[in-house]
């Protein structure tokens, strides 16, 4: 797996914008980062990230998957952010394991201690996906 981290992890007490199109992955990673003490803003698409960055919401770090709900590339998004907002850290992840590993790395620098091991983060995501896949509730 390619390490696509572009900049170092977030500093303490910062706000992280998590961009991830899969809601089950997004909410689990966002929860994990909140439990580490960060303020977290959630986005499912690159367009939403740019919308948030155009407001007064103070974002220190963008934590982005490689793809977004509007099918824009995380790489293209990272490039746009680095040009327009070089003050913002961008952490680009590729795949679930890489995302969990990077979230744990960010957590290590966070205000609070890691709430649980990154393998538990992965386990939760896989469990939610399996429940969704096999659910009799699904349309």
């Amino acid at each position: 797996m390619t390490d696509t981290t572009l900049t170092p992890p977030a500093d303490k007490s910062s706000t992280i914008l998590v961009m991830e199109p899969d809601v089950l992955v997004r909410m689990t990673i966002a929860d994990y980062l909140r439990e580490c003490g960060y303020k977290v803003v959630e986005s499912s698409s690159g367009d939403d990230v740019l919308t948030i960055l155009s407001t007064e919401i103070d974002i220190d770090t963008v934590f982005s998957g490689a793809q977004s709900a509007d099918e824009s590339s995380g790489f293209a998004l990272a490039h746009r952010i680095r040009i327009a907002r070089p003050d913002i850290n961008v952490i680009l992840t590729s795949g679930l394991e890489h995302a969990a590993s990077k979230a744990a790395e960010v957590c290590s620098n966070g205000p609070l201690t890691k709430p649980y091991h990154p393998q538990e983060l992965l386990r939760r995501i896989h469990l939610l996906r399996e429940r969704h896949r096999t659910s009799k509730l699904s349309p």
Binding site: V23, L24, R26, M27, A30, E42, S44, S45, D48, A69, L128, R129, R131, H132, S135, L137, S138, P139
Partner: peptide
């Protein structure tokens, strides 16, 4: 708070037994 951007995301959350 769990955030969903549309109905499909909400259904994914609800059907994951969260």
């Amino acid at each position: 708070v769990i955030e969903a951007a549309n109905a499909a995301e909400a259904i994914a959350v609800l059907s994951s037994q969260t």
